[in-house]
């Protein structure tokens, strides 16, 4: 029995992932098992360490604020599964 338990439906909702019932059951079992393993970190004293976000510390990389060539409208839409009037088409977001 796993010591950790993931609320799979809540997490799937956050991740915008539709899961079947059998997927939810399988992933719960597997992820609980993985979380138990990951909990190994708790056995180490990490308080004194500073967090590392990146192996190479690169800060404040700016480019010049100048116009430069970019994708055309046509290129941007080239892979759109649905498009209309030079724009991406998607389900209605705003209520009527």
């Amino acid at each position: 029995m796993a010591n950790h338990h993931i609320d799979i439906h809540h997490v799937a909702k956050l991740a915008r992932l539709k899961l079947s019932d059998s997927e939810a059951a399988t992933y719960t079992l597997q992820l609980d098992h993985i979380l138990d393993y990951i909990a190994a970190l708790d056995q180490h004293d990490l308080d004194a360490a500073m967090p590392t976000a990146h192996a190479e510390a690169v800060f404040d990389v700016w480019r010049h604020d100048e116009p430069r060539p970019s994708f055309t409208n046509e290129q941007s839409l080239a892979n759109a599964p649905k498009k209309s009037q030079g724009q991406f088409q998607m389900p209605r977001v705003v209520e009527e």
């Binding site: 991740a15 915008r16 992932l17 539709k18 899961l19 941007s76 892979n79 759109a80 599964p81 649905k82 991406f88 998607m90 389900p91 209605r92 977001v93």
Partner: peptide, 22 residues
């Protein structure tokens, strides 16, 4: 929306995200 698989037959945008990704 911009590229990749798009689920068919969804009615609202959330359902569209869930189904396309799922």
């Amino acid at each position: 929306v911009r590229y990749g698989h798009r689920a068919i037959g969804t009615n609202d945008v959330l359902e569209h995200y869930f189904a396309s990704r799922g």
